[in-house]
Design a protein around this nucleic acid. Structure first.
Length: 375
RNA sequence: GGGGUCGUGGCCUAGUCCGGUUCAAGGCGCCUCCCUGUCACGGAGGAGAUCGCGAGUCCAAAUCUCGUCGGCCCCG
């Protein structure tokens, strides 16, 4: 399942390979986010050409629409969305956090009020595993409770303990589904570590979750309003509580600088909406930093978004044209900048893997941050 | 030459009849910032007008009066 290929000699960064039912994933990796079964504005072909080895979908959203039965009847999620490579599905745990006004949480699960039609749905950790079993995702995430920052210690402890309990119940449910043919062979379930900003709670959670035993571990509850440095610290010390022989996934991270930082702490997997969301809003990631292509300095700029990039967008279109597309609200602009951003992220991951292979990650990180941040 | 009508930020307009806590407003455009397991082609904010110009009335004028300049329309 997970093979640690190389440990960088001068940092905690590592190179690995995660094998799933639908193929291998080179780590550290970035998983483009396709909440509703699509990475917004991008076709599976474009994703594949950019080098994506895995994508993320959201079980909660797909459960609401089109519904699990529709996807089952279509032959599973991979077939439904025409993506043959690995899929990781998020549980809806993050929606407990982000849809605060539309839900109620108890030990038994979450009551969501659908943002689509207002209907109420009660989802237990078992329901969420059943949904993901039905989707046929390669890596499933258990329901967890992600809290805002700052979070009172008592509340952080309760949600941490609830997350552990839900993790245990999720694992039991998956075992039952696998033995009863309710799940696809080889479906993996990761454990999630919560505990807010409290190091001792993170440690306790990591110990409890790893003693339950999962094929991979995620760090949740980061980038929920905390200061930047604290977020990095949480990832860093939590990583130290996780076993080296299993993949480590930090959920929802992040900006390029966050990813480079977290790789240095020993993280293997990332997902983030930023490259596509920023792409749709006219901000490009480049080797020289963020570039808001809508801004006036680019009105006559004949250069590409990033001279060092070889993506379709950079090979064919100028900043001036992209700015024009955004100013006239033409859909192609959203697509081209999203495409570039995804290429930038996946290329960044390739460079990271390459640097680790050569034991040069520390230098790579230093160089990257200095040229990226200076903008 | 006579009569009428209009003139408010880059653009289009509201307000003028009944002058003063909707009087300087709105839309578009322009500019900038934000976005981290996506309720999202989203969110927030900013700059920019001595209301054509001049004089008068009044405690007070985009608003009333007179003059003047410019645009448009009609009549000679």
């Amino acid at each position: 399942m997970f093979k640690l290929i190389h440990q960088d000699k001068n940092s905690r960064a590592r190179l690995g390979k995660l094998s799933t039912a639908c193929g291998d994933i080179d780590t550290p990796c970035f998983m483009p986010v396709g909440t509703q079964g699509t990475v917004k504005t991008m076709s599976p072909l474009e994703l594949e050409e950019a080098g994506a080895q895995v994508m993320l979908c959201n079980a909660y959203h797909l459960f609401l629409r089109p519904g699990i039965e529709v996807i089952k009847h279509s032959g599973g999620l991979h077939k439904f969305i025409s993506w043959g490579k690995p899929i990781l599905t998020d549980s809806g745990g993050y929606q407990i956090f982000s849809l605060a006004l539309l839900r109620k949480v108890s030990d038994n699960g979450v009551e969501f009020q659908s943002h689509i039609d207002g209907m109420k749905h009660l989802l237990s950790p078992e329901d969420v595993i059943d949904i993901q079993s039905g989707l046929g995702s390669d890596i499933m995430m258990p329901l967890d409770e992600c809290v805002h920052y700052p979070c009172a210690r008592d509340h952080a402890r309760l949600s941490m303990e609830r997350t552990v309990d839900w993790g245990r119940r999720s694992k039991e449910r998956l075992a039952k589904n696998l033995s009863g043919a309710g799940a696809k062979d080889g479906q993996l379930l990761f454990g999630i570590v919560q505990g807010s900003s409290y190091e001792d709670l993170r440690k306790e959670c990591a110990e409890k979750i790893t003693s339950i035993g999962f094929p991979g571990y995620a760090i949740g509850g980061v980038s929920v309003g905390e200061p930047k440095n604290l977020g990095n610290d949480i990832v860093d010390f939590t990583c130290g509580f996780l076993p080296p022989d299993k993949p480590r996934y930090v959920m929802g991270i992040g900006l390029p600088e966050d990813i480079v930082e977290a790789v240095g702490s020993g993280i293997d997997m990332f997902d983030c909406v930023v490259p596509t969301r920023y792409g749709r809003n006219g901000t490009a990631f480049t080797s020289g930093g963020k570039l808001v292509v809508r801004n006036s300095p680019y009105i006559e700029d004949q250069g590409p978004l990033d001279r060092q990039c070889r993506c379709y967008t950079c090979k064919n279109f100028s900043r001036a044209y992209l700015r024009h597309l955004f100013n006239t609200e033409e859909i192609l602009g959203l697509r081209l900048v999203s495409l570039h951003n995804i290429n930038f992220y996946l290329d960044l991951m390739r460079q990271i893997r390459d640097a680790i292979k050569k034991d040069e990650f520390a230098g790579f990180k230093r160089n990257f941050l200095s040229s990226y941040i200076k903008n």
